[in-house]
Write a protein that binds this DNA or RNA. Sequence first.
DNA 1: TATGAATGAGCATTCATTCAT
DNA 2: TATGAATGAATGCTCATTCAT
Lengths: 206, 206, 206, 206
Amino acid sequence: MSALEAELAPRKVPQQQRAQFTVDCILKAAESIIVKSGYDAATTNNIAEVAGVSIGSLYQYFASKEAIAAALVESAVMNATEVLRDCLIENMAKPLEESARQIIRTILETRKQYSFIFLRLPREVPKLGRLSRNVTTEKFLYNTIRAYYQHHRTEIGVEDIEVAMFVSEHIIVGSIDAYLNNNAPVITDEQLVEQLSDAFVKYLTK
Amino acid sequence: MSALEAELAPRKVPQQQRAQFTVDCILKAAESIIVKSGYDAATTNNIAEVAGVSIGSLYQYFASKEAIAAALVESAVMNATEVLRDCLIENMAKPLEESARQIIRTILETRKQYSFIFLRLPREVPKLGRLSRNVTTEKFLYNTIRAYYQHHRTEIGVEDIEVAMFVSEHIIVGSIDAYLNNNAPVITDEQLVEQLSDAFVKYLTK
Amino acid sequence: MSALEAELAPRKVPQQQRAQFTVDCILKAAESIIVKSGYDAATTNNIAEVAGVSIGSLYQYFASKEAIAAALVESAVMNATEVLRDCLIENMAKPLEESARQIIRTILETRKQYSFIFLRLPREVPKLGRLSRNVTTEKFLYNTIRAYYQHHRTEIGVEDIEVAMFVSEHIIVGSIDAYLNNNAPVITDEQLVEQLSDAFVKYLTK
Amino acid sequence: MSALEAELAPRKVPQQQRAQFTVDCILKAAESIIVKSGYDAATTNNIAEVAGVSIGSLYQYFASKEAIAAALVESAVMNATEVLRDCLIENMAKPLEESARQIIRTILETRKQYSFIFLRLPREVPKLGRLSRNVTTEKFLYNTIRAYYQHHRTEIGVEDIEVAMFVSEHIIVGSIDAYLNNNAPVITDEQLVEQLSDAFVKYLTK
DNA sequence: TATGAATGAGCATTCATTCAT
DNA sequence: TATGAATGAATGCTCATTCAT
């Protein structure tokens, strides 16, 4: 565990049920305020108040304001990771094109659901920014993704599979994030899924 | 929006040469500090100090800290737009694949040069985000980009050219931004340009 | 006006004894500094320091520097009103001349005690001026004053009692304020009371 | 000349016609801004700008912002003094009651005309406040006023003429100032003059 | 354990005044 | 003499964090 990770880790693991409830309240309050008004506008005192908890208690479970943001990101990443891994496993056996569509649709949905926490929060919290690539989805998924590529090896025409993985991940996730950031998109979600699948498959197959 | 623009507009036009020099120093100092440490970490007093200028002088030319950020973005947008338009015009006549490489390389370079100012700064400065200068960039470029696609119409196999433009723009810029955000990229810049050109051309050609 | 009042209202009601003590210290310090050096010269940091309290604590109980001034005025107005009403009631039954002396003495004393807070502070604090608490004082006293005049109706020779009240109030309070503003008064407090009573009675009786 | 007076004195006597014009412009601009928005809101830079003069020039004629206010007060005092002395001389021979009415009317008018400069400005400018009693009307008028009282000695029943002068001055000027400060006066100007004359005469005559 | 009063470093910004040109 | 660019001390206020109860 790096020094940075230690700094952002929960201060004490809540062992009683009541304590877990407190932690949940704090996170829920933090998320609602941060999503609505941004990280800077969310003061710890305000988070505590909305959570119905004293500021002293808040600091008993979180070492700092940044740690709250980190917990928020971590929770979102874990949820998204699970969803995506299930999706990958489920589509492992299907042909590339069909599975791609389903996987990209799932990525779009999770990115959309957590768009604020994935896209904006890390930028507003300096320490999280540095952390974000570490806790980001792909790390947890690495083996599953690799298995997926191995599974479709015969369909893939790119020589270096590491490069292919890296590039296609950035193409898909990058495009989706850019799309979600766009205020006036020209196409629908389903069109995006369609086009990205197309591009993805074309890129991978020779 | 007009009120917002007025709020962020420069406070007084420097008339003497000395004053213009002061403004330049402030902007240079602001850019260096903000890029290095982020918008929040850059205090106006620090900017003034690094610029070798008194805090009073800083506020003679910029109405607020946000106005400095706005000036930075404005200048970056103008530079990047110009570079990219030149690049597009220059490559108008070349075949798709060859021109793609050059264009993507240019986008990578400008995104890299201004990555902070384009990607992070607007998110860290609430009022800037609402100003959404990126839209402006695209507006300036729109006709040139469209001309580029028209020029390569025969090579392109996608039916709806608007969709093609939208998707390929997001693929390229989104991937590049994601790549630039990545702390431990697996590939080099040149490899990225190569792979993205490949994906871009494959996507556009039937 | 309601928005203005809300702006100047105390920020949070001190619930613990310790907190009430803090608030008292702040007000006492503020009064002493403001009376001695004026509103502008009294910085919030200085007030906090003299109060033996951190600047953070000060702002927990007062939303702004102006709110402190408002609290000072409010408290002075309430004290003065009570003292004066008691005095009027107590002197209700006495003959005009005797009661006048006592009332004018009381007004002189309260004006002197709170002269700064009544006379200068509202003018130095723009938002306070608009709140015009003096009007409020008079409102509280209005019925009592009127009862006093009714009580001495037989001694008073002026036809219109409203005019008499208005003029004599301005004569007494105005003279006293002017006297208190004078750096080198020719007469003593007691002489002033004497002369003003004389003038007051002569004015009211035909 | 005291240290304070020296501090507030004009920096250099404008000798050329153009310079006198500049000074006048500055004073006119200062008066209009201060009367409209208060002393604090009037910045020296703003005064200079409205006066159509550079800030450097402003400081060539006035040593400080306070000196500008002092000049404003001084000019108002001189005007008011002249008007009042003329009035006193003119009414010297008339009987007390008749002359009183005229004199009080004149005082009301000059106080009203310069109400801001006489009543508010000295309170907002600490150094002026201390100065104000020195430059105030009565000093310049002292001999004329005394002559007026001497002239009506036979009508006056108060033993100590110094006390009578002091008290009646404070009654008249204090009442008028209080009246002018009142936002919702119950009586008209002319009624005030009437009542104050009545009170003044009654007070002075046995 | 929970509370909330207290802390204080640090920030954006103003404006009277100076001085090189 | 006039200009206006430059100065910088000083201010009101915030908010993450601590700690006595």
